[in-house]
Write a protein that binds this DNA or RNA. Structure first.
Lengths: 211, 211
DNA sequence: ATTACTAATTCACGAGTAA
DNA sequence: TTTACTCGTGAATTAGTAA
C-alpha cells in the first residue's frame, strides 16, 4: 500500500530537502533490521522514489505524487460516507450563468451526464462559514466531470457536478474549475427556472441535499 | 502501514454499513489468494478492526479512526512544506479570552510550551473564505497541545496552538477544541496587548505568519 | 563509524482439501 | 457454494561480516 520508509521520510521532511539519516536510524524507526532498511533503500532508489548522497536521503517528485494520490484516495473513501446537506440564502449572481449555460458544449454534456437539459441560468446559494468544510468535503468526492471546450475563440473551462435536490426538486451543484465565486457560494443548475418554479426570491433560505 | 483489505473495504463503504463480500472476491480485489484473504480477515477480526456476519463485512470504529489518523498524518506531512500566512480584519470577540487566559491551568502551560506569559485577552482576526482551506490545513498539522483541566468545578477544554508572528510580533494562533467561533475567525494570543502595542483597531488588516 | 553482501532463518503465501 | 484448516514452498527478514 504505502511504504513505511517513504512515510517516515515524508514526516522528516525529506521531500523538501535532503535529510541526514543512517540505515540504522531508519531501521529503528520502522522496527526492522538495519539490513532490511539498507535493502529497501536500494530498491526504492532503483524505483526512482528517492535519491541518496553520502548518508542523506531525499524523496523524489515521483514519491510525493504517489503519496498524494494515496492521501486523496483515502480521504475520498473516508468521506464518501455521510450525506451532505447545505442550506443558505438565495443570492443574485453575476448573470454569467445564462451565457455559459447557453453554450452547446456544456448543454450537450449536461444532458448526457446529468440527464436533463439545463435552464439557462444558475441559482446561487450563499452558505454560512460553518458549511464550508462540507463544501470542501463534497468537492473531494468523485463527482461528474463536465469537460472544458473551445468555442468561437473563447475557452470554456471544465467543471465538476454533483446531483442534488433543491427543496426536493432535481438539480445539480456545479464547481467550475476556475470559479469567480468564493467558497461561500454554491452554483446550482436545474432543468427549469427554480426561482419561478419554487417561488423563491433573494434572501429566502434554500435547502440543498446531495445524493 | 495501511492494510490493503481495510483500504478496499473503505472504498466499498464498509464503514457505513455491512458490505456483502466473499473471501474470494476480496482476494481477487487485492491480488492475493482466497486463503490469504481468509487468514487476513480472521486477523483483522481478532484485532477488532472489523466484524463479520454471514459473509458481510463491516469496519469498526477503530479501523476508521486508524485510517483517519493515517490520512491526517499523510496530509500534514505532505503539506508541512509550504508556509502558511493569513491576513484579515481585526474584530472584537466575545471578551471571553480575558477570562480563559487568566486561568492558571492555561497560563502555566502556555509559559512552558510556547515560551511566553500570555496577555489576558485574545486578538480575533476575521479571515476571508478564500483562506479557510489554509486554516484547515494548519489545523491538520501537528501543533502544540495545551491540555484541558478542571478548576472551580468548571471544565476548561484542550486546545492546539501554533507559533506565529502578527505584523512581525511573536504570538500564537490557538484553536480551542470546542470553539464558539466559526471557521472564519482566528484567535491569537501573545505576550502583550497587541492592540496597543501594534496600534491597531477594529477593521484594520492584520497579517499572520505561521512558522 | 556506515553500508551492503551472503547465508541462515522465519514467516507469509497458496495448493489442496475438509467442514 | 463459502470458509478456514494443514502443510510444502519460497520470499522476506535478520545474523554475521566484509568492505
Amino acid at each position: 500500500m504505502i511504504n513505511d520508509i517513504i512515510f517516515l521520510l515524508l514526516k522528516k521532511g525529506a521531500h523538501r530537502e535532503p535529510v541526514r539519516m543512517t540505515t540504522s536510524e531508519i531501521a529503528n524507526a520502522i522496527n526492522k533490521s538495519q539490513q532490511t532498511a539498507s535493502r529497501e533503500l536500494i530498491m526504492l532508489e532503483n524505483e526512482g522514489l528517492l535519491e541518496r548522497r553520502k548518508s542523506t536521503v531525499k524523496l523524489t517528485e515521483k514519491a510525493v505524487k504517489q503519496a498524494e494520490n494515496i492521501c486523496i484516495a483515502l480521504r475520498a473513501a473516508l468521506n464518501a460516507a455521510g450525506e451532505i446537506k447545505f442550506s443558505g440564502a438565495l443570492v443574485t449572481g453575476l448573470k454569467e450563468g445564462r451565457y455559459y449555460l447557453s453554450q452547446d458544449g456544456y448543454v450537450s454534456q449536461i444532458k448526457e451526464k446529468l440527464g436533463f437539459s439545463p435552464f439557462p441560468g444558475t441559482l446561487n446559494i450563499q452558505i454560512p462559514a460553518s458549511q464550508i468544510e462540507k463544501r470542501l468535503e463534497l468537492r473531494a468526492r468523485e463527482g461528474i466531470r463536465i469537460g472544458g471546450f473551445e468555442s468561437a475563440g473563447r475557452e470554456f473551462g471544465p467543471m465538476k457536478a454533483y446531483k442534488c435536490r433543491i427543496n426536493h426538486t432535481q438539480a445539480a451543484i456545479v464547481f467550475p474549475e476556475r470559479s469567480h465565486h468564493g467558497l461561500n457560494v454554491l452554483e446550482i443548475i436545474a432543468p427549469l427556472n427554480l426561482r419561478t418554479h419554487l417561488k423563491i426570491k433573494d434572501g429566502d433560505t434554500v435547502h440543498c441535499e446531495v445524493f
